[in-house]
């Protein structure tokens, strides 16, 4: 009853304006650290507002790590960085029990690992073994870790921001689908234009970013999360999200021909939840009290792209997951009923 009542109440224009201002400060702060990547910064902000985890993929030197560090500085959150290597063990991340003397007796005391932070930077996550990668599964989904039968809550908010390198694949371990599915966004980081490069060279002689101060307090972050939850998701848009996610499955009736041909596995219901959540955040970023079709289309590639499993023939034909999602967005109509040909909408 309470959920329904909350869902029925729209955010007031003042609340939306206040949220937009706070988000603007965050995006603006990121913009001073990362130049010429406005779309990337907005997507990162959207993912954070949706309380999602993020996987950044791009070539070395594009500012992925710097982006995460800037984010922690702007939000005033506890930040830890773990450089994933093949010899990294799960205990090195989640922590491990250590035998200690206490009150004349010895007992195992749990020492928290670097995962106990608000913002965990998993740098080059695909260089760790699957065993170590899977140590993040429970933490990312349940936001807690269980060691020796004892469950430990992670601090709120908790975000995992991972990076991986699309080249130098020797000695790497591709993330399993279960792990990938837990990342709300996978964002491809591309290079910047020559103008932006010139700006970077001129302003940063040694490449060091400017010192950033906290723009959002912990309380303001929580308020933003609540406001995101308060963004209205119309039924027609929810229906569109459902049909879009359903169309990623090759056996679905609404699936386009390319999807039936090249997609082996489609997106999960978790993807639909992530799509709805990030659409809400995108709407709030745009200063709207509700989600529209445009917001869904904006975040669809980042949400669904890493969740589609294509077969080998797709690679031969030049189909990538991102291109497939773009095709899906193009093929699935906003209204699940064809408009009559005798009228022009």
């Amino acid at each position: 009853m309470t959920d329904t009542a909350t869902a029925q109440r729209l955010l007031s224009p003042e609340e939306v304006e206040r949220a937009k201002g706070m988000i603007g400060k965050l995006v603006g702060g990121l913009g001073t650290a990362i130049l010429g990547q406005q779309e990337l910064l907005e997507l990162v902000t959207i993912c954070l507002l949706a309380r999602g985890h993020m996987l950044l993929e791009g070539l070395p030197g594009l500012g992925k790590t710097e982006l995460v560090k800037s984010l922690s500085a702007l939000l005033g959150l506890g930040f830890r960085r773990v450089q994933f290597t093949p010899d990294l063990l799960p205990g090195d991340i989640v922590g491990s029990p250590i035998l200690q003397d206490a009150d004349g007796s010895r007992k195992l005391v749990f020492h928290k690992g670097p995962i106990f932070a608000n913002l965990l930077l998993a740098d080059e996550i695909n260089r760790a073994t699957p065993k170590t990668q899977s140590a993040l599964l429970e933490a990312m989904q349940e936001r807690c870790v269980t060691v020796m039968g004892e469950t430990h809550e992670l601090p709120r908010p908790f975000f995992v921001l991972a990076t991986q390198n699309p080249i130098e694949l020797e000695g790497t371990y591709p993330l399993p689908e279960a792990q990938l599915d837990r990342f709300t966004f996978k964002i491809n980081v591309y290079g910047v234009s020559s103008d932006t490069l010139q700006q970077i060279i001129s302003k940063r002689q040694h490449g060091q970013p400017p010192s950033l101060s906290e723009v959002l307090t912990h309380e303001e972050m929580e308020q933003l999360f609540d406001l995101v939850d308060g963004v209205h998701l119309p039924e027609a848009v929810a229906n569109y999200i459902a049909r879009l996610v359903n169309a990623t499955h090759p056996t679905a009736a609404d699936a386009p021909e390319e999807c039936r041909k090249y997609v082996r596995y489609g997106a999960s219901p978790r993807a639909a939840i992530a799509l709805a959540g990030t659409s809400r955040a995108a709407a709030l970023l745009a200063g709207k009290p509700n989600v529209g079709f445009d917001e869904v289309r904006r975040v669809a590639v980042s949400v669904l792209g890493h969740r589609l499993v294509l077969d080998y023939s797709a690679r031969l034909e030049g189909w990538t997951p991102v291109r497939m999602v773009e095709r899906l967005v193009e093929a699935v109509p906003e209204v699940g009923r064809p408009v009559p040909q005798d009228i022009e909408v």
Partner: peptide, 8 residues
């Protein structure tokens, strides 16, 4: 071009 506001 109401951006979903009419639906809402």
């Amino acid at each position: 071009r109401a951006g979903g506001l009419l639906m809402t």
